[in-house]
Computed example of a mutant assay.
Amino acid sequence: MPRPHGFEYREHADGTVRITHHGRPATTLHAPRSGQFLAEVEASSDPQLVMARWTGNYRRGNERTARNHPRNRR
């Protein structure tokens, strides 16, 4: 799986966390999910992968297979 990149997050005073991907908003997390995210990203050795997973913006490795399926051909 290619390593995700371009994710950043900012923690705000009201307890929300905003995650961006290449400068564009990807998601906003509110308490208590923001606390869970911060704990996971701090404990992780690859915060990019954690942010990709929390935003749902990551590849699963089956895109080529799905594109070539007879149901998806035109």
Rank of each mutant, 00 (worst) to 15 (best):
R71V: 10
R10I: 03
E11F: 06
A26D: 08
W54Y: 15
L49N: 02
Q36M: 08
R24Q: 15
L49D: 11
R64N: 09
P32C: 06
V50N: 00
Y9W: 10
D14H: 07
A43F: 02
G6I: 06
A52L: 05
I19L: 05
R3M: 13
H21Y: 11
P32Y: 00
E63H: 02
Q48W: 00
R73Y: 02
E8C: 10
G6H: 04
R24H: 15
H21T: 03
S44R: 01
E8Q: 13
H12Q: 09
L49E: 13
G23K: 11
T27Q: 09
S44Y: 00
V50S: 01
A66H: 08
R3F: 06
H69T: 08
R73I: 07
P70E: 07
Q48A: 05
A43G: 06
L29Q: 01
A31I: 10
F7P: 02
H21N: 07
L49K: 04
N72G: 05
S34P: 03
E42F: 07
F37P: 00
E42S: 09
R74V: 14
P2K: 08
G23L: 11
V50H: 02
T20M: 09
D14L: 04
W54A: 13
E42M: 11
S34M: 02
H12I: 07
A26H: 03
P47Y: 02
R60L: 15
H69R: 12
S44C: 02
G23S: 10
T28R: 14
E42G: 10
T28I: 15
A43R: 15
A66P: 07
R59K: 09
G35D: 10
H69Q: 12
T65Q: 15
G6N: 08
M1K: 08
H12F: 15
P25Q: 15
E63T: 06
W54K: 06
P32W: 00
V17L: 01
P32Q: 07
L29K: 00
G35L: 07
S34F: 01
G61K: 08
A43T: 05
T55M: 06
P4T: 04
Y9V: 03
L29P: 04
P4R: 04
G61N: 08
A13L: 13
G35N: 05
T27W: 01
A39F: 00
D46M: 01
R18E: 15
L38G: 03
G35F: 00
R64C: 09
F37I: 04
F37N: 00
R64D: 14
R60D: 14
E11R: 13
R33Q: 14
H5L: 09
T28W: 07
T20A: 13
R53H: 04
W54I: 05
P32R: 04
H5F: 12
V41H: 00
R73V: 05
Q36I: 13
E42K: 11
L49V: 09
R73S: 03
E11K: 11
H69E: 12
M1P: 07
T28C: 12
A26E: 05
N57S: 14
R33D: 15
